[in-house]
């Protein structure tokens, strides 16, 4: 089918022309680029602040959480997992008494002394499990292994950058309280998440 509107071949206006039109043309081009560019950037600018909004959110620091009555924790020197329950805010939703994590509590034999270890692997943040047969903590993701006191076992796996994260833990009026917080993973030092 024949084209009803054959396009005339148009030359870009770069041929010999008087100076004034050429200057005018440059001005037009410059304005077209500037204004056109500006309006195209506009919707991105409108989305910029909301897009970066997560950067100004913080975890709100550690939470002082009552975990268990001391009596419920056997004094066998072995790690016992406990769920950490606290009020949590997820964007707009306020979740009261929400399980937010897990710790291992270890009570030394015949004492009231309790240690708390975060169950989050310091390597890349998977949840560390307890291997009772070998009396070791083991991470299911990249073979990290730790002794009962949280010391990394480099002879088993070289990946953990530091020992397991221990948490401040107190016994008050027969209750075990833990300052629960998360740490940055992959670092040699223990650095709380902002």
């Amino acid at each position: 089918m024949a084209d009803l509107h054959p396009q005339p071949a148009v030359q870009p206006a770069s041929g010999p022309q008087a100076t004034t039109p050429r200057r005018r043309r440059f001005l037009t081009e410059a304005l077209a680029v500037v204004i056109g560019g500006f309006v195209m950037v506009f919707p991105f600018a409108a989305g910029l602040a909301p897009f970066f909004d997560p950067l100004r959110r913080t975890t709100g620091g550690g939470k002082h959480v009552r975990v268990t009555p001391l009596d419920a924790l056997p004094d066998d020197g072995l790690p016992h997992p406990f769920t950490i329950t606290a009020d949590m805010t997820d964007a707009w939703t306020l979740l009261p008494n929400e399980p937010i994590g897990r710790v291992y509590l270890i009570r030394k034999q015949g004492t009231q002394t309790v240690r708390a270890l975060s169950a989050i692997c310091p390597h890349l943040g998977c949840m560390v499990g307890y291997d009772a047969a070998h009396e070791l903590f083991r991470c299911p993701c990249h073979t990290s292994a730790f002794d009962l006191d949280g010391t990394r076992r480099l002879d088993i796996s070289k990946v953990p950058p530091r020992n397991m994260d221990s948490l401040t833990c107190k016994v008050e009026n027969g209750e075990v309280w833990v300052d629960y917080l998360n740490f940055k993973t992959g670092l040699e030092k223990q650095v709380p998440r902002a």
Binding site: A46, A49, D53, W92
Partner: peptide, 9 residues
């Protein structure tokens, strides 16, 4: 109401 610049977007 809670996201910075959300009202503008």
């Amino acid at each position: 109401y809670q996201t910075s610049g959300g009202w503008l977007l």
